[in-house]
Design a binder for these strands. Structure first.
Length: 569
RNA sequence: CGGGGCAUGGCGCAGUCUGGUAGCGCAUCUGCUUUGGGAGCAGAGGGUCGGCGGUUCGAAUCCGUCUGCCCCGACCA
């Protein structure tokens, strides 16, 4: 591509809307532009990257025997009512009506539609297993879109759905997809981890997530070097059996804590570690108006675990200030478990506290030196917090560490959730109708692009992995408007590189070299060739890798060979 | 949805407190010079100051209202 034919607009300054580095660089390098909150245009340069990612995914999916289809973005409400998700899914599902007042939604995922295809097209066990996939635009009306295309409302996803006669076949299909995903992320040259996950709204049994490791990742991953365990922190089970308390040493004391409402303030005010303060959270109950949850001050409530507790309303909802007062007779900030007349649960770690601080159910008052069983009864002990670094690994081999990751892939064993609800059956050997077992497998294609940048950048710009760079090589002639020889040399080398199948960006603009270097670095082309008159006359050309500090001179004759050796497979 | 902030040319910002006919840098266009790390000089174009209503002789500036966007939280494949 000649740069004189390619409108490239880059920014020196960081647009104020961009928070994370990938978003900043995607805007600065001219890959994307924001159209509205959570909606992005992909400009030609960005689309080249997106299409390279898609090509690798498509290749590996085809190689694994999956069959490509395309399903509509707009889906009829009836299918979602059939699966039950029209009610379940919540406001993230964007619903709309057509001119005849018929209800539709924008597809956030395609289980319903694919199950409809499967029940119409598949009727015999002889046709199974089948794996359909598509690369399609999805829409989820996120509460707060952010980080550019990392969490956009509209995004491109590769979703695959496999259909099996039985569990055994499902396990095989799942393993095949897991292997295909492993290949895909390897080929994308990303540093990633496979972690155990919660199936969430999609439903089903087992699921695993593929995470690209990055500081800015929205998910926390718990892992243990010693035993190889790795899981999304939200799914890590914590043992509730080993509750052991030190003997009380302090007397129960009612103390004044004027206007001290948060754990943070309390911890500072009393100079007590947050872990020794008891956090009392009030959530909506299933029958009771409120359920109180007791945690150590430095621990986070785990939504999934909490929703599984008896009597807690689903979806989990924290009570508002007025509701807290109605249920406890005390404003938020001073609520505590002593003499509190609502159902109570205590987290195992909080149950192990002694001489702790907690709210006294009176304005501007807390208790100090509180102890279970001596001062107040110990409620039901449960696991309802997120794991933190230092917790024991569930696999038993050591302590957990926490890393941050960007979820780019998720694979599920759905089982028969959708095939049952939507009556997707085939006849087995004995002529008996049975529900198909399903698996589903997603990759956030647009998110992969952002994740790749999060993991590959420096102060000058993007460092694309070879596999997904918008161009393989950038060709920069110096003084091409002054030197006929340079122009001729650059033109012929451009032709040669193209001939060799290299995606070449030819910077034939009449720009100063500094501008060309800066922009080539910003947009992250992995390999750079510079043609200057003097060296060209000596049969030499300058090569520099985007990832290396220094350039080297190479022979003009061997350029294509040299590049093909330098490029990653 | 709760809390906070912002809205002035394509991008980054000043001007708002204290009302008086809109400015800076980058980018764009023209000319000349320059050509190995985002050049210099001279000139030019581009803005109903987010929308609507009000106060005033006069509103980017004051008041009201609506909308959009960003951040934190909640929430979320």
């Amino acid at each position: 591509m000649r740069l004189t034919d390619f409108p490239l607009r880059t920014f020196k300054e960081v647009p104020s809307e961009a928070e994370v580095i990938s978003h900043q660089l995607m805007l600065r390098a001219g890959l994307i532009r924001r159209l509205a909150s959570g909606l992005y245009n992909w400009l030609p340069l960005g689309l080249r990257v997106l299409q390279k990612v898609e090509a690798i995914i498509r290749d590996e999916m085809n190689r694994a025997g999956a069959l490509e289809v395309v399903m509509p973005v707009v889906q009829p409400a009836e299918l979602w009512q059939e699966s039950g998700r029209w009610e379940e899914y919540g406001p993230e599902l964007l619903r709309l009506k057509d001119r005849h007042d018929r209800a539709f939604c924008l597809g956030p995922t395609h289980e319903e539609v694919i199950t409809d295809i499967a029940r119409n097209e598949l009727s015999s066990y002889r046709q199974l297993p089948v794996n359909y996939y598509q690369i399609q635009t999805k829409f989820r009306d996120e509460i707060r879109p952010r980080f550019g295309v990392m969490r956009a409302r509209e995004f491109v996803m590769k979703d695959a759905y496999s259909f099996h006669l039985d569990q055994e076949s499902l396990l095989e299909g799942y393993a095949a997809m897991r292997a295909a995903y492993d290949n895909i992320f390897r080929r994308l040259q990303l540093d990633f981890r496979i972690v155990q996950a919660d199936p969430g709204a999609i439903g089903g049994n087992r699921s695993e997530e593929f995470h690209v490791l990055a500081e800015s990742g929205e998910d926390a991953i718990a892992y243990c070097e010693a035993d190889g365990y790795s899981a999304n922190v939200e799914t890590v089970a914590i043992d509730t059996d080993d509750v052991s308390r030190a003997e009380p040493t302090a007397d129960l004391e009612l103390i004044d804590t004027p206007n001290v409402r948060t754990i943070d303030e309390l911890s500072k005010f009393l100079d007590v570690p947050a872990g020794h303060c008891l956090k009392t959270l009030l959530v909506a109950g299933e029958q009771a108006p409120a359920v109180a949850l007791l945690l150590c001050g430095h621990h986070e409530l785990n939504r999934i675990k909490t929703e599984a507790l008896p009597g807690v309303a689903r979806p989990l909802r924290m009570l508002r200030g007025a509701e807290v007062e109605a249920a406890t007779g005390c404003e938020p900030g001073f609520v505590g478990p002593k003499d509190l007349d609502v159902p109570l649960f205590v987290d195992a770690a909080a149950a192990s506290l002694s001489d702790f601080v907690c709210g006294a159910n009176a304005p501007d008052k807390h208790y100090r030196g509180a102890n279970w069983e001596r001062d107040l009864p110990l409620p039901d002990v449960v696991d309802m917090r997120n794991a933190v670094a230092g917790d024991p690994s569930p696999a038993g081999g050591g302590r957990l560490e926490i890393a941050r990751g960007i979820e780019v892939g998720h694979i599920f064993q759905l089982g028969s959730k959708y095939s049952e609800a939507m009556e997707a059956r085939v006849l087995d050997k004995d002529g008996k109708a049975c529900e198909m077992q399903m698996g589903c497998y997603g990759i956030g294609v647009t998110r992969v692009v952002a994740a790749a940048i999060e993991q590959n950048n420096d102060e000058r710009g993007i460092l694309w992995p070879d596999a997904i760079a918008p161009f393989d090589v950038v060709l920069i002639p110096i003084n091409l408007d002054k030197s006929y020889r340079v122009r001729e040399a650059a033109d012929s080398l451009y032709a040669e590189l193209q001939q060799a199948g290299l995606d070449t960006l030819y910077d034939d603009r009449n720009q100063r070299p500094g501008v060309k270097f800066a922009e080539a670095d910003l947009i992250g082309i992995p390999h750079r060739l510079v043609i200057a008159e003097k060296s060209w006359d000596n049969g030499q050309i300058e090569y520099k890798s985007r990832r290396e500090a220094d350039a080297e001179m190479i022979s003009v004759d061997g350029v294509v060979d040299f590049l093909s050796k330098r490029r990653m497979p």
